[in-house]
């Protein structure tokens, strides 16, 4: 009986990803090169935003991955908690730095986009603020992994942190919306220029949308490739540790 849990065995996981990884990596490269060239050079300038709008091809996919990487960590942590598969815990560990970097890319490209649009690098817009908080959550999570020596204890504790953190991240998102609306009502006018995701896509016509989807696909594949690669590295690290431990005992 083939079950998905079979691949929770590190050896089987390594064998499978050995074949899958090159395909995913190649797909990521093709999609990203195609999407970015198409987006940057083969689409017309926006009549209002000019060529600045083209940063959307980096900004939106990065922002999407930034949030979804956390979901990946959440699911992987739950699987580790319930089924105690080591690979699952390592996937959560591997996804965190990738998610953190994507959050940073989204923040930086957002600032670069925001400067000509709003005349300032940073506004305490609820969305921007939420991303900043998300980045802090990533930092804390990564730091906790690094600080604990015993790998199983680290996996347990970071899984709990990920679960509790998810609840607080949602709470923060809600609180930040509440807080900004209380602070300056004018923010919504600024936001009419659209910051990310759904707002933008509604406004963009098909000429922009198709390369955007290609870019998103590229980023998803890139994320997948990076996480697989990092998970493989972590598995090798644990394997080395286990071999050394055995040598010492025998």
């Amino acid at each position: 009986m083939a079950s998905i849990w079979e691949y929770a065995n590190p050896v089987k996981f390594m064998r499978l990803t050995d074949r899958v990884l090159p395909v995913v990596a190649l797909g990521a490269a093709v999609c990203m090169v195609a999407g970015l060239i198409w987006g940057f050079f083969l689409t017309p300038d926006d009549f209002r935003q000019g060529s600045t709008v083209k940063i959307i091809y980096l900004h939106v996919p990065a922002a999407l991955i930034a949030i979804n990487a956390w979901f990946v960590m959440l699911v992987a942590s739950l699987v580790w908690f319930i089924r105690r598969h080591h690979v699952s815990a390592l996937v959560a560990k591997a996804a965190a730095p990738v998610g953190a970097v994507m959050t940073l890319i989204a923040l930086i490209t957002g600032a670069i986009w925001g400067e000509p649009m709003w005349g300032t690098w940073w506004v305490w817009d609820p969305r921007l603020t939420s991303f900043l908080i998300l980045f802090l959550f990533y930092l804390g999570y990564i730091a906790l992994w690094e600080a604990i020596e015993s790998p199983d204890t680290a996996a347990d504790l970071t899984a709990v942190l990920c679960l509790v953190g998810s609840v607080f991240a949602v709470l923060s998102r809600y609180a930040v919306n509440f807080w900004n609306q209380g602070l300056h009502q004018g923010a919504s006018v600024l936001r009419a220029g659209a910051v990310t995701g759904s707002d933008t896509e509604e406004k963009v016509s098909n000429v922009f949308a198709v390369p955007l989807f290609v870019c998103i696909a590229g980023f998803v594949l890139l994320f997948l490739a990076l996480v697989l690669l990092r998970t493989r590295t972590e598995i090798r690290k644990r394997r080395t540790a286990a071999l050394i431990a055995r040598e010492r005992l025998v």
Partner: peptide, 22 residues
Amino acid sequence: LTVGIKRGGLLLSLLVLPLYVP
């Protein structure tokens, strides 16, 4: 969370501060 970590004070702040936001 940080009880077993030597000199975990700074890490404790890093973990707790985002949770304090709401």
